Simulated assay, not measured.
Amino acid sequence: MNIKQKFMKNYKIYILFALAGIFVTSCSEDDKVTIDVQNTVTSGAVLRTIAQTGTAWDVLDDTEAYSVEVEVQDAEDGALLSEVRVYVDLVDNTEAVITDPAETLIATLPASAFSTGANGFPRSTYNTTLSEIASTLGLSLGDYNCGDQFNVRMELALTDGRMFTDTDATGNVSGGSFFSSPYAYRISLIAPLPNDDLYTGQYQLTTVTNGIYGVADYADGVYTLESVNNTTKVIKDVTTFVAFGGFGPVDVEFELVCGEIIMKPAQGVGAGCNATIQSGPANVNATYDLMNPDDSDFLLNFTSDETADCTNSVQAAVRLTKV
Rank of each mutant, 00 (worst) to 15 (best):
T200Q: 10
T42C: 05
S227D: 12
L193E: 10
A107D: 14
G259P: 09
I98L: 12
D148C: 13
E103R: 06
D309Q: 08
L158Y: 02
T167D: 14
Y87M: 07
T303W: 05
I50W: 07
A219G: 03
Q5S: 15
Y126V: 07
F241C: 04
T307E: 12
S279E: 08
S227E: 10
T232L: 02
I190R: 08
D237A: 12
P122C: 11
F23G: 13
S115G: 08
I35W: 12
V68M: 09
Y288D: 04
T321W: 05
I187C: 12
G161Y: 00
S180R: 12
I13A: 15
A20M: 09
I190G: 06
S26I: 07
G78F: 09
S279L: 07
Y213K: 00
S304R: 02
D196S: 14
S135H: 00
A216D: 07
D89N: 15
R123E: 15
M263Y: 03
A316V: 02
I190V: 15
I35S: 14
S227L: 02
V33L: 14
Q38S: 10
L158F: 02
Q202P: 00
V72N: 10
I13T: 14
K6D: 12
L299G: 01
T239H: 02
G259D: 09
I50T: 10
E103Q: 13
K264S: 14
T239I: 13
D217F: 00
E95Q: 11
A219M: 10
G138M: 06
E132R: 04
Q5R: 12
V46Q: 06
S26A: 09
D251Y: 01
M1A: 13
V41R: 10
A216V: 01
S174I: 00
T276H: 00
T99Y: 06
Y183F: 13
M291F: 12
V222T: 14
Y144A: 11
K236A: 04
V252N: 03
G268D: 09
V86P: 02
Q278D: 12
T116W: 01
I22M: 11
A56P: 00
I15A: 14
A243N: 15
L137S: 03
K4Y: 09
P293F: 09
V222Q: 11
F298P: 04
G21K: 03
T55I: 09
T63N: 15
F164W: 08
K12S: 15
T53M: 11
I262Y: 01
T159Y: 03
R319L: 08
R85G: 04
S26C: 12
A96V: 07
T104N: 01
Q202K: 13
S124G: 10
A317W: 01
S82H: 07
E132C: 00
N285P: 05
R162G: 04
G272R: 03
N127R: 14
L47N: 09
E103L: 01
G44M: 08
A45V: 09
M154P: 04
L300R: 02
L320P: 03
A169C: 06
A286D: 08
S279W: 01
M1F: 13
E69H: 00
E103C: 01
Y66M: 02
S140K: 11
W57C: 01
D168K: 05
